[in-house]
Nucleic acid binder design. Structure first.
Lengths: 231, 231
DNA sequence: TAGATTGTTAATCGATTAACAATC
DNA sequence: TAGATTGTTAATCGATTAACAATC
């Protein structure tokens, strides 16, 4: 399988093409919360008990008010003069993001990107548990990568239904992405994390996150352009 | 090397931590342009000569005015009643994004993610040419992946200076990311595409794009949460 | 008490959308 | 000409930032 070409024609920003957009929390906030979480982890190690919004804001060059508003979204309340209790705040963010509810996930496409994702054992931290990986290539089927067995794609429908899997990860080449997505949706998967370089589409009630590298690259290269011009 | 753990603790949205922010064009526009580009490619194949903003907007569920404003940023002008000439518009976007100026790039960290990036041969399309890859692991050094030779990291300073490389791609584990970034910056690299799960920092004039998966995942999982709650 | 920090309301800023005259 | 589409100006919308009283 020519897996990798899949991945990087396009990546780096998630746009949900669907109108499943009744997000209570704004996207910017949702994007910042994981940043805070990592920072909280860093400082928790140092033995601190409280952290102020001012302090978090400084770390990321954000506005303290913005940080407080973001944190308010999680329901956590701070203490005047002290700030936020690190351990409960951490838990609040994790709960808010749904990272304490583990979701079983299927991954389809065991190319380079698929392998990279399988190799990463930290997804549980984010509430994602890849229970099976699928591919069409008989060379790969049957192998075990990072404790995950590679299964032939034909078995996905049956397994998805029996295991009640809700999340699908797509790491196949562009041409197959929509087909795999359709197959997933047909079989009860309703949240799709798409790493293929084409955005996939689905019914409005399906949650789709398209990962794009090209978007990231566009920001980088256009800044480079401006820098060249400035010289 | 435990490469993969690097990658996916965190990804999926690019935040430049630096204040190198005199972007003439807004980030939202910059993120949409690559989408248009892909769409233009799709329809160019069908033999159309002109495309209207209305039509592009429909494809992405955007507002036609927004599309026109985005396209205006590239300097391309449309024709009333017809729309935009597909081939010149395509070129205008590519030029605007700087994707026609090929930048030589170094990649550091040949783990799963590094390999995935090396395996993807389409970066030239985005103005990126990975000329060398570096790693510390003697097992990998000397091997050739997708026509790119893996070189020992010690040689980076010398080569970066001699080859005048400006762009660095970081695909090492979290703990090494900042160190690699510092090494790059010391040796004249001033644009860094960081795939490590920790944001890297640098002087204000250094262009840094941090790729985060966790951000993408946060949007996905929080939507899942809301969906569960709704039920 | 004094003062840092919270939570909240109001002001600002920027991006999206609406309105519309000009064009081909 | 008629009418779809452009480019642009104005209105709206939403997110960020400022201001500040309440708190510990």
């Amino acid at each position: 399988m020519v897996q990798i070409s899949t991945l990087f024609i396009d990546i780096f920003f998630s746009i949900t093409m669907n109108k499943f957009n009744y997000l209570v929390t704004s996207r910017p906030t949702l994007r910042r919360l994981p940043l805070y979480l990592r920072y909280l982890n860093d400082i928790a190690v140092k033995g601190e008990e409280y952290i102020s919004s001012t302090c978090i804001a400084k770390e990321f060059n954000f506005d303290p008010t913005q940080v407080r508003k973001d944190l308010a979204a999680t329901g956590e309340v701070g203490v005047a003069r002290k700030g936020f209790k690190i351990d409960t705040l951490t838990k609040a963010i994790i709960t808010f993001l749904g990272w304490d509810n583990v979701n079983d996930a299927f991954l389809v496409g065991v190319g380079n990107m698929g392998k990279a994702l399988l190799g990463y054992s930290g997804f549980e931290k984010y509430g994602l548990n890849i229970v099976a990986a699928f591919d069409k290539d008989p060379e790969i089927v049957g192998k075990i990568i990072n404790d995950t067995k590679i299964i032939t794609l034909d078995k996905l429908p049956d397994l998805a239904k029996r295991m009640q899997v809700r999340v699908g990860i797509i790491t196949v080449p562009a041409d197959f992405a929509q087909g795999v997505a359709d197959l997933m949706i047909e079989n009860g998967i309703y949240a799709i994390w798409n790493f293929a370089p084409v955005p996939i589409k689905g019914p409005e009630d399906i949650i789709i996150e398209n990962v794009r590298l090209s978007t990231s690259l566009a920001v980088l290269t256009s800044k480079l352009e401006e820098k060249y011009k400035a010289k």
